[in-house]
Amino acid sequence: MTISSLDLDAKLGLYRSQVELRQFEKRAYDLFLENYVKGTSHLSLGQEAIAAGFAAAMREDDYTFATYRGHAHTLARGVPMTGVLAELMGRTNGLMAGKGGSMHLTSVEHGVMGSYAIIGAHLPIACGAAWSAQYRGSGQVAVCFFGDGTTNIGAFHEALNFAAIWKLPVVFVCENNLWMEYTRTSEITAVEHPAADRASAYGLESIIVDGNDVDAVFEVAKKAIDRARAGEGPSMIEAKTYRQAGHSRADPGKYRPDEEVAEWLAKDPIPMYHARLLAEGATEAQLSEIDRAVAAMVDLATEEAKAGETPGADLLMKDVWADGGSAWRN
């Protein structure tokens, strides 16, 4: 894989982005344990390179469609940490004032067009945004992230065919972390590569990338996004990765063999990239300065989120309708 399109500054940016996602997710987990974050949450620990690499390849007005495992994809588009953390904590300074929660992070002004918690549902919706961009001639591209488990639901197949026949500017990104919730994906999927092996059924190229290598992710993302923007239609990319934690807050992930976990921890995208950047001329001081700055940023976001107000009754009945209200009768 050629990595020539990125200079050292850009790569330091990718490093920083991954560190932000990592430190944020760790803080989110700590705040669960302290009972500041309620409900459920699905962390992207170990999968940061995919979010960071794609976000860097996107234009500012491109669309992100994420899943319930969407903290990383939301933050990677430049959404402030405070808003995301406060949303997890159910505060009015949250992205959606606490009305959506961890699984539905949305920031339209940053192109984050929603995080969707029904498996597969957002693939057709991403097609719709891409169709709209195509009709309006805006040059925007929709990038739609989903997990390996999604490849076995009907909406996945409807969306791929739909995108292919209309040559929609959409990039489908399967984050294959090997586990569909608590079950090994290979045990419940007819093909070895759940997304890539299905691509040919829709006339698409079979693309697999090392999802823990942010440079590789960036290159493959850029190519697919450029292609979509040029009117050449959709792509599907399968990024191989691993979630270092369980499926959700409630899951310690005990079903995974220790040696598998150890193997993938050794392939952790961040230490790997740290080493690469040192080899390519970055200094230890530069990288630890980034680590320190991000830690301060997460601390500040935590304080700001904690200081947010608890939503009041005024929000309860708001915004069912476009007029801001919820009246269904006169």
């Binding site: 669309y63 339209v108 067009m113 929603g114 549902a121 957002h122 693939l123 057709p124 919706i125 991403a126 097609c127 719709g128 945004a129 891409a130 169709w131 709209s132 961009a133 009709y135 309006r136 929709a142 909406a155 409807e158 969306a159 739909f162």
Partner: peptide, 9 residues
């Protein structure tokens, strides 16, 4: 899905 994505954009 297409209708929804188009409407939100």
């Amino acid at each position: 899905g297409a209708a929804m994505g188009a409407a939100m954009t």
